[in-house]
Design a protein around this nucleic acid. Structure first.
Lengths: 346, 346
DNA sequence: TGGCGGCCTGTTAACGTCAACAGGTACAGT
DNA sequence: ACTGTACCTGTTGACGTTAACAGGCCGCCA
């Protein structure tokens, strides 16, 4: 009687423990540990005996015990928001692959919604998580006023230089310049821009770079059309641009908005690229099959993901807090949505 | 000298331990534990003292120790392949949200490529992972001949009934029927189909259901066009269909192929929906902004993800091995890519 | 011969937590 | 006054692993 808890005691062990292996192989637990960790100074015959004992009972080291003893978890946490966005998805994929290959596990910590509280909640979780370091896949403007547990190595994937952490990202400025110059080189007078959200650093960098490129070439800078990455925003912007005869070239801050823009232009009977040229940003899989196939800036999310993991592991292993910025160079992919402007009034 | 290992001893403790809190609050560790776990029978004053000590040192229970002691990790593993595909991404997102809300952490176990070996490698990892259960987000046909560690609760997200695990998925058959009947109801003589990969159960179910629906209505079943989910495959199929005058309605096994198909039709000058109606499957964000906006089958990946987590946690907590199948009902979203056929020769 | 260094193995203790048990105290019911 | 019960707290030991240490053996060199 007086059993006031239903869950009692350690749950049935799933596998065999080090001690089981040791017993079968006739060695001490320490020797099993040495074999498991590839330490030097284990007799070849002994090692064989231990290995075969391991196979016999299907031994798997218990990660929890290992972590408890050694203080390292062989695991990295990824804080992410909006998993389903193009960039996040691809970067996460690359992070997961790189981490796995390096022997690290991935702990996914989703930020449930865009509020400060949700971000804070995710970070609070963190203290409790069994991770050796964190990769932040959240746009850093959402991090204002949120404290990362100190002592935990952190790498940020975003274009902000405001935080004192290593940063890995695509070179947004270069990408936007490539896009803009491509359109100018084709002979367009100027280039219109459908921007990403105000607060996003990536969006801001693309926009700033677009503007600077125009100015560097001595062109007029048309008013910016606001957007929020969504296809719908691109569509709205497209409706507004479709009526302006003078618009011959548009650079959208991502491919999804380009898709929406294309639809609006089709609807209004503006032909692409005959009447209007369009350049996107991201090079999502579908971009090559838009109508028409989209000229866009290819981002190597793969490289960014791998770079973030590398930087983080370096930090974990060295214990040093390095603040460097690694930018991956994007490249322009020219498809069928861009062409020289028609010489109607020249 | 003779220091052959750089990493020595437990790494600097990140936070305070139960013992630290106990010392400050002037109680035993056990009492701290009781407060941390909300056990009954703790004096209100004592609890306050402990709580304030916790706050003071920023105490966070050590997950590793807890797991070691209790045998549960409060963590679920997600085995996934091709994170960047529409379905996987959304389902993972929902899984992560649901798990987090239930207090479980997510361990992401990527399958690096499509080979048997890679799948096996991911599963081998598993024995070593600190998880209480697994959700398999990999199409089950890739699992042939791969053994899941026994004793570990598993839930599969796929439409196969071949495995003896609980299954949660969208009702593929219903979705395909809705799509096909919609086109027949509009007055089309029959419906062509661009299928997903041969081996995929989801693809097979959609295809079978499409065929059965046609037969149930006494229509001829045109030859299936092979596909592999990719936009490119849809484009190829589109090129082949564009020349056939008799093709007035096409159902593609996913939205991405529909996008490729649309492009091919545009290229060949076939108007949508005037000449050809198109229905997709998935309802990805962009579908509403295809040109024309795509009629498609909406899948509730959210519900599937949440369902999978619920089922898994039930299994973890009960210890029972239940084999039930939970199908989520999709619904047809009618947009502008479908219309009644032109009555050219009627 | 003694001593030294490389190799191999075992013993011990500790990481942080919590279940089980062993007391306590206080109060109600008999 | 005695028993029973609800409430509160502390002690002990164990989960599985590995760092640190201790000790043994062997061969080589002086």
């Amino acid at each position: 009687m007086a059993t006031d808890s239903t869950a009692s005691g350690p749950v049935t062990r799933r596998g065999a423990s080090q001690a089981d292996v040791a017993r079968i192989a006739g060695v001490s637990g320490q020797t099993v540990s040495r074999v498991a960790n590839g330490a030097r100074y284990v007799d070849a015959a002994t090692r064989e005996r231990v290995l075969s004992a391991m196979r016999e009972v299907g031994y798997r080291p218990n990660r929890a015990a290992r972590a408890l003893r050694s203080g390292r978890f062989q695991s990295i946490g990824v804080i992410a928001f909006e998993l389903s966005s193009v960039g996040t998805t691809h970067t996460l994929d690359a992070i997961a692959a790189a981490a796995t290959q390096t022997g690290y596990a991935i702990n996914l910590l989703p930020v449930l919604d865009a509020t400060q509280d949700a971000v804070r909640a995710a970070f609070d979780q963190l203290g409790e998580q069994a991770v050796d370091g964190i990769i932040i896949l959240v746009e850093t403007h959402r991090l204002d006023g949120v404290a990362v547990p100190d002592g935990l190595p952190v790498v940020v994937v975003d274009s902000s230089a405001e935080y004192d952490y290593p940063i890995v990202d695509n070179d947004q400025a270069l990408g936007a310049r490539l896009a803009t110059e491509h359109l100018l080189d084709l002979g367009h007078e100027t280039v219109w821009h459908v921007a990403g959200p105000e607060l996003s650093y990536s969006a801001r960098r693309r926009r700033t770079s677009w503007q600077e490129t125009l100015e560097a070439h001595g062109r007029t800078v048309p008013p910016v059309l606001p957007g929020d990455w969504s296809t719908g925003a691109g569509y709205e912007a497209g409706l507004r641009l479709a009526d302006k005869e003078e618009v011959t070239a548009v650079f959208t801050a991502n491919d999804q908005m380009a898709l929406g823009l294309l639809r609006a232009l089709h609807e209004r009977g503006r032909r692409v690229p005959d009447d209007v040229s369009v350049v996107g940003f991201d090079d999502m899989e579908e971009a090559a099959y838009f109508w028409p196939p989209l000229t866009t800036v290819h981002q190597s999310f793969d490289e960014v993901g791998r770079g973030a993991v590398d930087a983080l592991i370096r930090e974990i292993q060295s214990g040093e807090h390095e603040h460097q910025e690694a930018l991956v160079r994007p490249r322009l992919v020219v498809r069928a949505s861009t062409a020289a402007p028609r010489r109607t009034n020249a």
